[in-house]
């Protein structure tokens, strides 16, 4: 069956085409705005950082020091036996910076009470995964700490 007249009124057609044209224009104009807003600064992390041996030796056993890995906070732990471990200090839960508690020998995140043991493994609270551990290499004059050599420490 063929209808005698269009179901679409003339007005609706006009209004629809005006709105359609306008939205095309708006979309075209928004493109540069969105590109402008979503620009991302690329700040590369350093390949590795070096800590002087004298500084390493100055750390008391069972304590930790923060270090700058580019714009990433790192934490260098010296265990009671003198073993050195380096982790990213960013909690794996919501990116707060963790601190070392010598009494309990745990890393503690104050934001949501998350705990990691001295190997960086998440043991209590909300953190979903272990702290990212950095690669370490002993040289004559210092320790080389590198992100690339790092891995997620295993439980």
């Amino acid at each position: 069956m063929r209808l005698r007249e269009s179901l679409l009124s003339r007005r609706k057609f006009f209004i629809g085409s005006v709105l359609g044209g306008l939205s095309m224009l708006v979309a075209y104009v928004l493109n540069p705005v969105v590109r402008f807003l979503f620009h991302r600064e690329k700040i590369p992390l350093p390949g590795a950082v070096k800590v002087a041996m004298s500084d390493v030796e100055a750390i008391a056993p069972n304590s930790a020091r923060y270090f700058e890995y580019g714009h990433l906070p790192g934490i260098l732990l010296k265990t009671e036996r003198g073993e050195l471990r380096a982790f990213s200090a960013k909690c794996t839960h919501l990116d707060c910076t963790v601190q070392y508690e010598p009494e309990s020998r745990k890393f503690y995140c104050a934001c949501h009470k998350g705990y990691f043991d001295d190997k960086g493994v998440n043991i209590a609270g909300p953190p979903p995964s272990p702290l990212l551990s950095f690669g370490m290499e002993r040289q004559e004059d210092g320790m080389i700490i590198s992100y690339q050599g790092g891995r997620k420490s295993k439980g």
């Binding site: 350093p46 390949g47 590795a48 950082v49 070096k50 800590v51 002087a52 500084d55 390493v56 750390i59 020091r65 923060y66 270090f67 700058e68 890995y69 580019g70 260098l76 080389i144 700490i145």
Partner: peptide, 15 residues
């Protein structure tokens, strides 16, 4: 006191 430790950045080759 003294919670941080100084580091020097090692640049990658060709950086």
């Amino acid at each position: 006191d003294a919670m941080t430790i100084a580091v020097t950045e090692i640049k990658e080759e060709g950086y």
